[in-house]
């Protein structure tokens, strides 16, 4: 195999650096799962349609199945494995467990990373399709259930845990 089809990159995942020689076609999702041992992010569709692969790239939520790994060099990747620091679950993880915000758990890592990214987007004043007041100088939209549902709609859950997920996210937002 020639160097045309592979690249050596440094990937920062959950505060650790991985030096990898990757097929240029390798997605960030596959690199995490197959090369750095992070199987928390899941492959639900490989087409950016389900959200199970959601991770944080420099704090922003991205679909890792639609991100080529070589483009993530230099960025800080956070997966579900990196959400809990020092073994202590984050409040939103605790809320998911306590309120039963999942059943099979396959979409959960995506839901959690997406929720963390979404809360940051909201805190930064980003509107959504259901935000009534889009005036840039207006107050930040209140994060009610309708806002959470709209902003989280890229993360499918076939078990139908949506009501508990929304409750857990609203608890975290408070």
């Amino acid at each position: 195999m020639t160097n045309d089809t592979r690249s050596v990159i440094s990937l920062r995942v959950n505060d650790a650096t991985h030096r990898l020689c990757l097929d240029n076609r390798r997605t960030l999702l596959d690199a995490l799962r197959e090369d750095t041992g992070h199987t928390g992010p899941k492959k639900g569709c490989d087409h950016g349609q389900c959200g199970a692969c959601t991770v944080l790239l420099d704090g922003r939520r991205v679909l890792s199945c639609l991100t080529l790994a070589v483009t993530a060099e230099g960025a800080e990747v956070t997966t579900v494995e990196g959400l809990a620091g020092d073994g202590e679950l984050r409040p939103i993880q605790q809320a998911f467990v306590r309120l039963d915000g999942f059943q099979c758990g396959y979409c959960t890592s995506g839901q959690l990373c997406s929720a963390v990214g979404m809360l940051a987007e909201h805190a930064a004043g980003w509107p959504s399709a259901v935000t009534a007041d889009l005036c840039p100088d207006g107050p930040a939209p209140a994060l009610d259930a309708a806002e959470v549902r709209e902003r989280m709609s890229g993360n499918l859950c076939r078990c139908g845990a949506y009501p508990s997920i929304v409750r857990a996210i609203l608890e975290e937002a408070r």
């Binding site: 799962r33 992070h38 199987t39 928390g40 992010p41 899941k42 492959k43 997966t79 579900v80 494995e81 959400l83 809990a84 679950l89 993880q93 998911f96 467990v97 306590r98 039963d100 999942f102 758990g105 396959y106 959960t108 890592s109 959690l112």
Partner: peptide, 17 residues
């Protein structure tokens, strides 16, 4: 809460792939 709850919110639960 589910006995495997912690594993499922930390990415530790292993699925077949």
């Amino acid at each position: 809460p589910r006995v495997e709850g912690r594993a499922k919110v930390t990415g530790g639960a292993r699925y077949s792939a």
